[in-house]
Design a protein around this nucleic acid. Sequence first.
DNA 1: AATACGGGGTT
DNA 2: AACCCAGTATT
Length: 347
Amino acid sequence: MTPSPTDLPALRAALLAWFDRSGRALPWRVGPEGGRDPYRVWVSEVLLQQTQVARGRVYFERFMEAFPTVEALASAPIDAVLKAWEGCGYYARARNLHRAAGIIAQEGFPAHYAGWRALPGVGPYTAAAVASLSGGEARAVNDGNVRRVLARLGGERQPTERWVQARADELLDPARPGAWNEAVMDLGATVCTPKNPKCPECPVSASCAALASGDPAAFPAPKVRAEVREVRAVALLLGDTQAAVLERREGTLLGGLMGLPTQLLAPDELPAAALERLAARLGARVTGELGTVTHTMTHRRVTLSVYGGEGGPPRTPVAAEALSRLDHKALALWERREGSLFAERKS
DNA sequence: AATACGGGGTT
DNA sequence: AACCCAGTATT
């Protein structure tokens, strides 16, 4: 049920009062409302894309330590940026952040939504967030929290992006756009949660159509997700966990990160065949199998068989490079090889 | 409108 | 094992 226009001020006042009392204290929420440090806000928003706050917070602190200013970020090598991002996923975010930092270092921070939106890695959500939180501009954000909160308030089971944005635009408090955006997201994250929402604690429960329906958690309906595909590959560990042959991954999957030389198996291909191709390409000799690891990456499940070998290109220090979790799992097999197990075996 | 893109938390 | 997370870029 859409609140009538006369309810709107009351709804805004109720949520903002709750926010002023119960909003989260977060490390990027520094500076005056609507006038926050654009660098911190921008970095945090990119870091928090599809990443939970608890996790993003750890990376944020690490990132600010390594790159305290946009100039520091712009002048840093991309490898250092990826290393700071290691393990956080969606590495295009780090590559785009670095590219955008170069632009900002030249031209200064964008003054408005459109300028933010033009930067690589800044979409409608991030542009609205930074423009409102840092610039005081009246732009309504639309993220997973907003989608859920508004779907429930409006009693809409299948909210389209268009519907959500339209509702968010209507509700946005033009007097406090930054605080309003943070308030809706805080409500979604702490009260109006996906499962078991805490409706008794909700400052706007009286206006909630989903609660009135009796089953608020049923709003919005779950999104249909693509199936997880199976992928098989072989990898060659030439060296050890300290120094090994590493290659830079090209393309979109883990692009920019370093990793063990890897060969995907064609459908129905035997690992031995792919391994032979891989060893031939590197000019290396396979000495034995270290084991198999599996790794799930939302949309695909990778089964990677790892082999040890000799020869091939020069080894490089592993610790300095940014590796995916998959490669860390592969490297961990080295510690479990026969000799090591024997040496560490206790009586 | 779909799909690719990481990795992990919560239920 | 679902379902989700302060989304974006590319089809």
